[in-house]
Design a protein around this nucleic acid. Structure first.
Lengths: 203, 203
DNA sequence: TTTAAATGTTAAATATAATAGACATATAAG
DNA sequence: CTTATATGTCTATTATATTTAACATTTAAA
């Protein structure tokens, strides 16, 4: 073995034996989903075109279904694989946030005020952002997983996404895949106010 | 068979034979992902603790891996199941939206203006909502999958979530699991303006 | 009570996924 | 050229997922 020998060893040190054991309980998840939709194992099985036994076995985690099988089963609900695995969301507690309760993330020329304090396990991040005149997100373009969207409330706001650039005013909006390098800048004389949302949270 | 006999037949009419054949190509997806990370099949196999053959077979779609297997393989990258399936998002086209390009969803006393026209396959829905004085979302509580959050820009906005109710002013915010029944109402004299985000899109 | 249909579970049979190891090819080193 | 290491693919064997058909309970109707 040649040059990649090391990376593998390092990797294994980090991740145990390289196994990514998500702890989530596939069986429990399917069972909840099925019961939420008021279907019996047999009803679901028939709609999905599979045997009822396999659903019982999956729900007991006595088998690890092939993705083809899981897809068929979910097809009986119906729900996509994507949604099924995205269902990681835990039940939430705090619902309301006073203006001054928003979590200050960055001060100075750019102010990010986030709804909610700890977003681990949550699907959505929503921010009220303020940019002082001339403020920007820096020279290196931002890049992360997920999608991102926002609506400008006040000011003249320059948004750069990949090769595209545009100046947005009040009421204007943007929507893009956050994996595309992006950057924000206040190009006007007054403060920019913008409400943005990301999924999943990027920090 | 009793009362659910019909629902099944109707369902099958809608969805072919109840099979949810996502068209996405799992093999191609894994291959791209692996190549993106500059790993050979054997390197990935070693890191994941599986045989190299299975990766070849999966990438050729000659086998439908068990979710356990897929999890292990992704563990070698590493990437979670969630992210793997969330990778469904097609490369996006339109990024910027002028104020008047926002899609009008509901007129009258409540105005929903959405960023983007067709959100199928997208993870995020962001809306600029306006409520005339006295306007509300109706007597029946809303309920759908996903999470929902918003920040009030103007006005006095009553938000009811499950047993909780609160009146929010400019800058105040909310965040909740959309499966909890909820309702919105303008309880002030002036128009309410609020920016909200849902994931996944609820309509 | 008896009967019938529905429920979730389980066992044995079958189909398929996963492994170990060989094969063919390509690239680079000697 | 030969040799060595890496690549992706394929075949036979083993392990496991999936089906079929039964079982044990429960619920509702007769």
């Amino acid at each position: 073995m040649a040059d990649n020998d090391n990376s593998e060893k390092i990797f294994n040190k980090i991740n145990g034996e390289g196994v990514a054991d998500d702890d989530f309980d596939l069986g429990q998840r399917l069972r909840s989903l099925r019961e939420l939709h008021n279907l019996s194992q047999r009803q679901l099985a028939k709609r999905a075109g599979v045997s009822n036994a396999v659903i019982s076995l999956i729900e007991q985690n006595r088998t690890s279904p092939s993705v083809g099988m899981l897809k068929k089963v979910l097809g009986g609900i119906p729900m996509s694989m994507t949604d099924f695995f995205a269902l990681d969301v835990a039940p939430r507690e705090k619902v309301f946030f006073r203006s001054d309760e928003l979590t200050e993330i960055a001060g100075g020329k750019i102010s990010f005020r986030q709804v909610g304090r700890d977003l681990t396990g949550k699907a959505l991040q929503i921010l009220r952002e303020r940019y002082q005149p001339g403020a920007d997100t820096g020279d290196t373009m931002l890049r992360h997983d997920g999608e991102e969207s926002g609506i400008v409330i006040r000011g003249r706001f320059e948004v750069t996404v990949g090769e595209q650039r545009r100046i947005l005013g009040p009421g204007d909006a943007f929507y893009f895949d956050s994996r595309i390098p992006h950057r924000f800048r206040n190009v006007g004389d007054e403060e920019v106010e913008v409400v943005t949302a990301c999924t999943p949270p990027s920090f």
